[in-house]
Design a binder for these strands. Sequence first.
DNA 1: GAATTGATGCGCT
DNA 2: GCGCATCAATTCA
Length: 188
Amino acid sequence: MTDNDLFALDAPDCARALIGWTLRVEGVGGIIVETEAYDRTDPASHSFRGPTPRNGAMFGPVGRAYVYRIYGVHWCLNVVCGTEGSGQAVLIRAIDPSHGLDQMRARRGDVADRALCSGPGKLCQALGVTGAHDGLSLREAPFALIPPDEKPSQILTGPRIGITKGVETSWRFGLAGSPHLSRPLKAT
DNA sequence: GAATTGATGCGCT
DNA sequence: GCGCATCAATTCA
């Protein structure tokens, strides 16, 4: 699958397909092991109420990054997908750190390896993703998105985390057996 | 101009 | 495992 195919998928399909891809920012990153899907029919999604200055990137061309600040402190990285203007995005929740471990530790401080990228906020800090990356294409520097070498392992599904609305929508996807998932997932 | 809200992380029990 | 802190952008009046 090419990145073009990937970005054209609707959010839930794209979120599932993203598992196993390698994401790097300036050479720092790893394999994506946990994602969540959002679209504008979803009460929990930022795009639900329509375009605003903040979520504008979500309604722009696909294949771009949508980065926003949560709780005024943390950053979250999304991938815009579907079709342009459809307001769909996939939240990158966790990766398996395999590239630039030293760089991550330098940014994250001296934490356990499993804590380096096991959450959206930590992940962005470890990779150095900030609001400055909002709206940038994932196909161009400093980003790099690399397809899986082989068929990814079993992908699990479950309810999303940390939201108050639409909790029953099982649009969370994770790589089976990864130690970096924020919560265990049940096999489908 | 003021109130409210978070797609979280960390520390403590 | 649970509860709390945290800060700015968004939203509403």
